[in-house]
């Protein structure tokens, strides 16, 4: 099963292309939608794609190992594809993080407790992810893996995103976007 391109140049080009995703929000749709609000939606989209892809991949890998249905070929190709899926997860989350931060700075006047909580949770997840990727120390790696992989933190993040959208919607800030 060949999921990702084998050429390293093509892989790097594809990953680099993700960096230009935020430019999409500047596309004029003629409906007067605000760039700041679109950046927020882009952040949600990036986060969902980046995290769901990794979760689905891990579930596929687990199923392949448990069932041993497809033999060594599929398991090996899944194992080799892991690094690429992880790179995709990191890249898209980084894009989403910076888009989210830009969205936050643009709309800083509307800052409320839920938004601030959301920003804190996103930043903690991002910092633990960066430490997990870059550190070589055993203890620090284990610590960051524990923090980054907490289901409770993920649940809190999803809840705060939903509440942020509901409250902003209620305040009429994104009403004109619909």
């Amino acid at each position: 099963m060949q999921v990702f391109p084998t050429s390293p140049y093509l892989k790097i080009s594809l990953l680099m292309a993700l960096a230009f995703v935020p430019t999409l929000v500047y596309a004029d749709d003629g409906r007067g939608s605000s760039v700041a609000a679109t950046l927020g939606w882009l952040t949600i989209g990036c986060g969902m794609t980046a995290n769901l892809s990794l979760v689905i991949f891990k579930m596929m890998k687990k199923t392949a190992v448990i069932k041993l249905v497809v033999g060594s070929n599929a398991s090996q190709s899944l194992a080799s594809a892991y690094q690429q899926v992880l790179n995709f997860h990191i890249m898209l989350n980084a894009v989403g993080f910076f888009a989210g931060m830009s969205h936050g700075f643009m709309l800083i006047r509307g800052l409320d407790y839920i938004t601030l909580s959301l920003a804190i949770v996103i930043t903690v997840s991002m910092i633990s992810g960066i430490i997990l990727k870059l550190t070589s120390g055993k203890n620090l790696k284990f610590f960051s893996r524990l923090v980054h992989g907490q289901a409770i933190l993920a649940a809190l993040l999803v809840t705060l995103v939903v509440l942020h959208v509901i409250t902003r919607w209620h305040h009429g800030i994104i009403m004109h976007f619909i």
């Binding site: 409320d112 407790y113 839920i114 601030l116 909580s117 804190i120 949770v121 903690v124 203890n139 284990f142 610590f143 524990l146 923090v147 907490q150 409770i152 933190l153 809190l156 705060l160 509440l163």
Partner: peptide
């Protein structure tokens, strides 16, 4: 609404504390 912020900070501190405790235990 302000409770949300304090509870979020407490949850994060809880997660960080739990992770530190786990590392020390190991």
């Amino acid at each position: 609404f302000s409770l949300t912020l304090y509870i979020t900070i407490s949850a994060i501190l809880g997660v960080v504390g739990y992770s530190i405790w786990k590392v020390i235990k190991i």
